[in-house]
């Protein structure tokens, strides 16, 4: 199957809203089994979004198959690359949060979840894509010329 390169902009935004709720619950329940399960699920979701693409990301898939057919047709599209990059940034935070659990450091988990939560919330509420904005800065620092 060919990878779609254009996405309905509402898809990633819906996904960010779901991510915000999942991470908020994980944040307040940090240290419990519930938080660990939620973080594992969120890590898998980020992983699929980053490796396969936003179209295959579970929240994006739910939007495309269940919600999108019931709402008005898409009017704005965006390239799949920026949200995919953002999923990879989210994956980094989620892995750090899981590392906190295995290292027995609730502080590390809460800081990582807090940062990912802030990024997902900004995306859902303000349509601000932190991962996309960091792209050029990261290129500036990682490329020497």
């Amino acid at each position: 199957m060919a990878t779609p390169t254009q996405l309905d902009v509402r898809g990633p935004r819906f996904g960010a809203a779901v991510t915000t709720v999942v991470l908020a619950v994980a944040f307040v329940s940090a240290g419990t089994t519930l938080a660990t399960i939620l973080l594992l699920l969120q890590t898998v979701a980020f992983g699929i979004g980053a490796v396969v693409g936003p179209h295959a990301q579970p929240y994006g898939k739910f939007f495309a198959t269940v919600i999108r057919p019931r709402i008005s047709p898409a009017t704005k599209f965006e390239d799949a690359a920026p949200p995919r990059f953002a999923q990879a940034v989210g994956l980094g935070f989620a892995v750090a949060a899981l590392a906190g659990i295995f290292l027995n450091s609730i502080a590390l988990t809460q800081i990582a979840v807090g940062l990912a939560l802030a990024a997902a919330f900004l995306n859902a509420a303000f349509s601000f894509c932190l991962g996309c904005e960091m792209y050029l800065l990261i290129r500036r620092f990682t490329t020497s010329s």
């Binding site: 908020a24 307040v28 809460q110 807090g114 939560l117 802030a118 919330f121 900004l122 509420a125 303000f126």
Partner: peptide
Amino acid sequence: NSFGWLALVLVIASAFGLWRRW
């Protein structure tokens, strides 16, 4: 507590979002 921190994260993110929009 955790709820306080959660509220703080959301308030800071909102302030940043509003500033960025402005």
